[in-house]
Design a protein around this nucleic acid. Structure first.
Ligand SMILES: [Mn+2]
Ligand SMILES: [Mn+2]
Ligand SMILES: [Mn+2]
Ligand SMILES: [Mn+2]
Lengths: 220, 220
DNA sequence: ACAAATTTTTAGACTTGTCTAAATTTTTCT
DNA sequence: AGAAAAATTTAGACAAGTCTAAAAATTTGT
């Protein structure tokens, strides 16, 4: 069965929300992520359910079925491979590629995406450190954790970001954070949950909790 | 003003039809090319006209305005650059790329297409010999003519094809015709307008008028 | 010139996906 | 438990783009 752009976007969003929430996803969460009204989401969830791509009980939230998960993973795979292509081959910066990839992820050609994967050298992660599902939908487990979940006195390496929006990535860049940066978490300031971090041994800077919970690190 | 996929497809088709017909394009011609009903075309022409992209008088056919032509050329540019990319970088055959390019031509990013152009080395023609408009919409005039318009005893080189459909290209390949083939037009058979052609000096073969009028050649 | 054939347009319906406003269900709070 | 608040669904409308059937305009043929 073929999928419309709208359906693909819903499945992808439900998948992304499920990554950080093992339970049912609520209508409102989807609405906020997809930038639409809850009424529209209710309607679409009913349709996705009829197609067998989600399990959905009125008022009880939604979950992907195996079929739905498979579709979602193929969209995520395309999105991340195209982002890698845009940065590595087209020379874009990491904060410029998400919106273009939002369009490219809907191009329908299994053969193209596999050839692209090969052309790019089968990359494991996209320019934001997010894992790229392989042809069979298997995602390499990278074992990263959120900077906001680390304890004081932790040393870690910045491995990725949990958001690709231009505003967020430009702020991260302004803070002089990049993939591979060595971070030393000095302390967590209880007042606002901001954290003091030394980047590459420099004098510590403040990073808001909002930012920290979108930074993926590997503890050394 | 932004353009929908449907609008872009209409503008592109009107442009393509105008290439071989300097007069107004009829509703039915558009309908046949775009695989839709004449009623739908009428409706869309009215809308395109309101947006200032075509000149359209009821019952009198349609023409692109300068604005419309500019949009059409940008779609054609994207289509042909992506086709080149698919053949040269992804390793597809020339008969496999048209349908994928039909999707890719709607990706909206001026910056991407210019970077792609550069990445590909500013190609002048696509894999089917069709000229690629440059950034400013200027098309190199290649001075090709249709094989069906040649006189007997002409020697020429196959420079392109006037159609990208898979069925057509596979037939052309089966006939052992490729870009660059040296052709010697022996005679035109008046009964069915088929032509006898020697390819690369081989024993002559028959080529139907239908095929010949989709083959672009340069006379030597 | 004028009837017949052909082309084109209009009218009305349908699908997808969205919205607002109102109704319903669930959750929270006393 | 029961009221109030919050979340969710339903109802009805709308826009884009398509379709069929019918009407209107144009072209063709004698
Ligand atoms: Mn992204
Ligand atoms: Mn990404
Ligand atoms: Mn093509
Ligand atoms: Mn082509």
């Amino acid at each position: 069965m073929s999928t419309s752009f709208a359906e693909e976007n819903y499945l992808k969003i439900i998948y992304r929300l499920s990554e950080s929430n093992p339970n049912e996803i609520s209508t409102n969460e989807v609405a906020e992520m997809i930038q639409t009204k809850a009424a529209s989401v209710s309607d679409m969830l009913r349709k996705l359910s009829e197609k067998g791509w989600v399990n959905y009980q009125k008022y009880q939230g939604v979950r992907l079925t195996d079929k739905g998960q498979k579709i979602a993973l193929s969209i995520v795979r395309k999105h991340r491979l195209w982002e890698f292509f845009l940065v590595e081959k087209m020379g874009f910066n990491w904060d410029q590629v998400h919106d273009i990839a939002e369009q490219l992820e809907h191009i329908e050609s299994e053969e193209l995406i596999n050839k692209l994967d090969e052309f790019l050298g089968f990359p494991k992660v996209d320019p934001h450190g997010d894992p790229i599902p392989n042809k069979d939908g298997v995602i390499p487990d990278l074992g990263y954790q959120l900077l906001s979940d680390c304890k004081p006195n932790t040393t870690c390496t910045l491995m990725g970001v949990a958001q690709d929006s231009t505003v967020f990535l430009q702020l991260v860049t302004k803070l002089d954070l990049k993939l591979g940066s060595k971070l030393n978490l000095i302390e967590i300031n209880s007042f606002d949950r901001s954290i003091s971090v030394s980047i590459e041994g420099q004098t510590p800077v403040f990073i808001s909790h909002e930012v920290a919970k979108n930074i993926l690190v590997k503890i050394i």
